[in-house]
Amino acid sequence: MKEIGELVIPGDARYAEDHEWARLEGEDVRIGINDYAQDQLGDIVFVELPQVGDTFEKGEEFGTVESVKAVSELYMPLGGEIVAVNEDLEDAPELVNQEPYEGGWMILVKPSDQAEWDDLMTKNAYLDLLKGE
């Protein structure tokens, strides 16, 4: 298991309590699970993602990630419409373990409420949350 100091938590992303990351890309937000989550889950063997065009509220389940240990829900860090999903994960779910912030991204969302982005945690706030866990 990685110690907190070993975790890669990029400063250019925001974080949700359920260990998703979110990164602004123009008007859209790219979303995945962070290094802490992938380390806790272990080998990820299957990722279930929504359809492009689906809309979700903040906090709603948008998919599942299946590891050798368990099946875990994925929650929307902010509400919006799915504009793209990472189809590479169908054949290579291990990308979530190998590069959680790059090739292991999960969905691209058009946010419905910009204010929800502002509610997400910065790197430091998220690390404080982890230290408390």
């Binding site: 298991m1 990685k2 380390d39 806790q40 272990g42 080998d43 063997v45 050798v68 240990k69 373990n97």
Partner: peptide, 23 residues
């Protein structure tokens, strides 16, 4: 060795190492 640990049968045991359970 960097194992992910969990309690099983009353013992704190490795679930998997960084290699991953699949390998």
């Amino acid at each position: 060795a960097g194992a992910n640990m969990a309690v099983f049968g009353g013992y704190d045991m490795p679930l998997w190492y960084p290699t991953g359970a699949k390998q």
